[in-house]
């Protein structure tokens, strides 16, 4: 068991049928995820979110997935029936979306939602589930779980909402956590808190984290390994600690286009997109 990576993806394509032909959102990428924090970085339209969704087979028609291999812990999920996928999603693989406002049900209290989520995957009594919900809220550093558990989603702040989402995703003890821009809807100071919580949980529980973000600096700070995507392909992959030695002009462009308070410049560097990047073969991020 230990030798199989948590997630093993080879030659993954996500395609959409359109009026003018087939549009490829993700074009033949390969990567693996171990018990590590893997950052997937790219601009909007680079296919990074599609990759996250494809792993859970959440692509809706007219989109579809093709891959040579798509394994979760050695188990092929490409051929898994939809019922098995439902068990997998939110069970062994969890996903945190960008905005907690849209992922929490507005007419149920936080506690009800947590209990529902747990009981959907495990056969536990209501009181036990309630107890577990309190524990998990405590785990995501919510100070007063007794009070928060009876609140409705509109009564909590964005940062707290995102922590509740994380708590909900953690309830069934997933092996893999996919976080799709989990902090971009939050204020800077709250961002760091939420990231710290994710970080601590991933370490303590030995999960694999797939962290999808447009913010290269944030990912570099937070992840072990980085995959950089452009136009549906992986253009570069490196250890986060070695990002400063990155070679690809796209990576460098992303790094340099961020305005920096401490290095004032008259003009920011602008990416000059080379059409050759689009055609270059995808770099494998397998380990």
């Amino acid at each position: 068991m230990t030798d199989a990576p948590l997630l093993d993806v080879e030659n993954l394509w996500v395609k959409f049928r359109t009026r003018t032909g087939v549009f490829d959102a993700v074009r033949g990428i390969s990567f693996t995820l171990g018990k590590e924090r893997l950052g997937i970085v790219g601009e909007s339209g680079s296919g990074k979110s599609m990759t996250g969704r494809a792993v859970l087979r959440l692509i809706r028609p007219p989109g579809f997935i093709e891959a040579d291999r798509l394994n979760v812990h050695g188990e092929d999920i490409l051929s898994l029936p939809e019922k098995g996928m439902r068990k997998l999603r939110g069970g062994r693989v969890s996903m945190i979306m960008q905005d907690p406002k849209f992922s929490l049900n507005p007419v149920m209290t936080v506690g009800q939602q947590l209990v529902e989520a747990l009981r959907a995957h495990e056969n536990v009594s209501r009181s036990q589930a309630h107890k577990r919900a309190l524990e998990v809220l405590d785990e995501v550093a919510i100070r007063d779980p007794q009070r928060v558990i009876d609140l409705y989603p509109h009564e909590v702040s964005g940062g707290m909402g995102q922590r509740i989402m994380i708590a909900m995703m953690l309830l069934p003890n997933p092996e893999i956590l996919i976080a799709d821009e989990p902090t971009s809807a939050l204020d800077v100071s709250v961002q760091l808190q939420v990231l710290d919580i994710i970080d601590k949980l991933v370490r303590d529980r030995g999960m694999g984290l797939m962290f999808i973000s447009h913010d290269l600096n944030l990912v570099a700070k937070f992840c072990d390994r980085i995959v950089i995507m452009y136009a549906g392909r992986i253009v570069e992959t490196c250890k986060a600690s070695e990002l400063r030695n990155a070679q690809h002009p796209y990576t460098l462009g992303l790094l340099n286009s961020v305005p920096d308070l401490e290095r004032p410049r008259d003009h920011l560097e602008v990416l000059k997109r080379d059409p050759a990047w689009r055609d270059a073969p995808s770099v494998s991020a397998r380990q």
């Binding site: 601009e43 447009h214 462009g253 286009s257 305005p259």
Partner: peptide, 8 residues
Amino acid sequence: LDVSVQAE
């Protein structure tokens, strides 16, 4: 916007 577009 994306950081690269933000720069532009």
